[in-house]
Amino acid sequence: MIVAALSVTETVTWGIIYYGFPVFLRPMEQDLGASRVAVTAAFSIGLGTSALASISVGRWLDRRGPRALMTVGSCLATLLTFAWARVESLATLYVVWFLMGLAMATTLYEPAFAVVVSWFARGRDRALLTVTLVAGLASTIFMPIEAALLERMGWRSALTVLAVVLGTITIPIHALLLRQGTAGRTAGVAEGAAPSLTLGQAARTAIFWVLGIAFVVSNFATAAVTTHLIPFLVERGYSAAVAAAAIGWTGAMQLPGRVLFVPISARLGSRVMVAAVFVAQALGVGQLTLLARLGTLVPFIVLQGAANGMATLARASSLAEIFGARNYGAISGAVALGANSARAFGPVGASLLLVGLGSYPAVFWALAASLVAAGAAVLLADTTTRAER
């Protein structure tokens, strides 16, 4: 029931809040008389706010459970979507998306994963897989609906309709069905495991910082490549339509990547799996530097897409396995602070790298090398993280 509830609410929230923004980007520019950079800054503000709120959200989830927080988050997201439909200036848009960042922090993957971890000591990876597989269809389901609503009634009316859908579906599910699981309290007794680490204890281990920095590198690289792939390909003679399709297919490859995650992780273990994901991302990015020789984007799409899909599960699974379930929310929130900030900074950061390094191939080589280094660091890091410390 918990997995089914979260699968529905995550799909709806991601589909409307996260994927709705790019659909309505162009009409917002025209209506507000603002540049694309100015309008997309609102989205970056939301992502940054969400990242900053992640530790506080995680602590709340560990101590008080998800029902009140995620219900309030859904109420806030609904009200802000109504407000979004009525903005008349950039300043108002920025305020709405600053607050929307708080709503995202309390309703998207981080709190949902914390709920799953609190419920499942065994079968956790499969439960996480189910939520992300269903929610992974959010863009496929909602972006065509949003585009149709936009064409039929304009962006403001479309957002009003979507706000009603968002509130009608997510608020009652969060209010009536969510509650805290007991896996974090019972795992040690049931399996003879050492107690879970607190955030403070985790922060005194090498593996916590290595994982935190590694996921910063991973999210930065993913955001950078996604944002700059179209201009890179257009410079090399591809049409904008083909470049956009490459991004779409890369996103589609996340689903089979997630399906493969569970059996591969069961064989390799969480730490080796995380390192393998980073190396696969590096190999994917590296394909772009060899595009002239390869003559095809298929290796990039397969490797990058599958690895990106696995990375979402790898973070949740590795943190729960290494540090335990009891304080997962706070620990995951601390890692998310850096990782989600990197996602927000990635597009701008890649632009700065492009200026400094002088070409896209140099940028992609630098990103690939950083990902390989991140994978190696995860493999070599001290894993003494529990009671023996």
Rank of each mutant, 00 (worst) to 15 (best):
Y109N: 07
A194Q: 08
A68I: 15
H174Y: 11
A183H: 12
A194L: 10
A5I: 12
L137Q: 08
T49C: 03
R293H: 15
R59V: 10
Y328R: 07
S54M: 00
A206H: 04
T250C: 14
S317K: 14
R389V: 10
I230N: 15
P361D: 15
A241F: 09
G181N: 01
T198A: 02
A240E: 14
L354G: 04
S139P: 08
W249S: 04
V298K: 04
S317A: 10
L176N: 03
A114G: 09
A41L: 13
M104F: 06
G295H: 01
R26K: 15
L357Y: 03
L255Q: 14
R67A: 10
G338A: 07
G73K: 02
Y109G: 03
A330S: 10
V23Q: 08
A368T: 10
S35P: 07
A339S: 15
R386N: 12
A368G: 14
V298P: 00
E146F: 06
A193P: 00
V355H: 08
Y94W: 11
V259F: 13
S44T: 14
V116L: 07
T71W: 01
A320V: 13
V234D: 09
G305K: 10
H228K: 05
S54G: 07
S265A: 15
T92I: 07
V161Y: 11
A138W: 03
A203S: 13
S332K: 00
F24D: 09
V259Y: 14
E151R: 12
A243Y: 05
V72F: 04
I213P: 11
L90P: 10
L291P: 06
L137N: 11
G251N: 13
F208E: 11
T160W: 06
L176W: 15
A103P: 03
V272G: 01
I17E: 08
P263K: 05
S318H: 14
Y109K: 02
A51I: 07
F43G: 06
D382K: 05
I264L: 14
T227A: 11
G65C: 12
S239K: 06
A362S: 04
L313M: 13
S270G: 01
E29C: 08
A138T: 03
E235V: 04
M143S: 14
E388T: 14
G237N: 10
G181I: 10
A336K: 00
A103T: 02
A334E: 01
A83L: 09
L288A: 06
G200W: 12
P144Q: 01
N219I: 11
R36C: 04
N327F: 13
A368E: 02
V23D: 14
M253W: 06
I171L: 03
T11H: 02
R258C: 04
A105L: 04
P27C: 12
F21G: 01
